[in-house]
Design a protein around this nucleic acid. Structure first.
Ligand code: FES
Ligand code: FES
Lengths: 152, 152
DNA sequence: CTTATATAGTACTAAATTAGTCCCATAAGG
DNA sequence: CCTTATGGGACTAATTTAGTACTATATAAG
């Protein structure tokens, strides 16, 4: 299904929640209740997010998590990359490791290009966009103008 | 990793091979040898592709598989949809089934939009593009022009 | 009509990945 | 201190995916 893991789904959900109602910091418990995601899982996801500094953590009583940057400056792509460990549709398109059957393969660069397109799509949508209920993405048009200028 | 299944990878690989050297029909055995993918697996993939009429099958001696349409008219997106059973990054974004935690969820439409972007990216790249070794995707530029015109 | 070749369908097993939970360590406020 | 909260890691269960095998069906050639 070309699916993201549930962990990633949760991650975006949690962060979007934080972006939507910005009451400063949230404890894992509070987020679990608000989103109906099981607490241990919420905890796990936030820990992962905090390692890559997508959220900041405050320990101790009155502690919790808060977004590390403003929602507009955090992209869905970053969250995906953090929780999935990269964005690569196929082995061949990973930046490291070469595919074992490269010598017999004609597809070569195609996948790399497709990946770039997907990364681009994910990298253009911010948490602020996700939190906006009637979000209509004109991101594609923005790109358009940009590229068109380059063209001429 | 936001990965496609290996089956999908194989599918694209096999069909790209058929697109590149169009010697009519290929038997599963021939394709397995050419691509170094294990025969039973090749067989499985081709069967799946044939059900959705992405390849045509000819039974009996001198039989095999061939592309159902010209390479330029088959998109990578179609192959992915066939072998992954759809293109949906999250539960919420599937056309059917509603996500169970929709009532508590703020992300709402965001995923649908992201999916549309990904689908768009996959649907714009054809087998002919994949088979082209030095494929430089101007697909985005093509879109650009298109959209720009609409803009005015 | 018989035989060899090749796909169709399906069922099954094994492997890998992912999800989810738990425990203990650490930090900080009251 | 003692309570609250995160940090890290390890572990188990569940799900998904990969791969294989077997039987049935179609067809071309002799
Ligand atoms: S299949 Fe990996 S390089 Fe093409
Ligand atoms: S998490 Fe499913 S609708 Fe938002």
């Amino acid at each position: 299904m070309l699916r993201l893991s549930k962990l990633t789904d949760y991650g975006v959900l949690l962060m979007t929640h934080m972006a939507a109602s910005d009451s400063g910091t949230y404890s894992a418990v509070a987020l679990a209740e608000a989103t109906r995601v099981p607490l241990p899982t919420v905890s796990k996801v936030l820990k992962l997010l905090s390692r890559q500094r997508l959220v900041e953590s405050i320990r101790g009583p009155r502690g919790g998590y808060r977004l590390a940057r403003s929602p507009a400056r955090i992209t869905v792509g970053e969250i995906v990359r953090c929780l999935e460990g990269g964005i690569a549709l196929t082995e061949c398109s990973r930046d490291d490791a070469e595919c074992e059957q490269a010598p017999f393969c004609v597809s070569g660069n195609g996948w790399k290009r497709i990946n770039a397109a997907v990364r681009d799509a994910l990298g253009t949508i911010s948490l602020a966009d996700m939190a906006e209920p009637d979000f209509m993405p004109f991101f594609r048009l923005q790109r358009t103008i940009q590229v068109t200028e380059e063209l001429s």
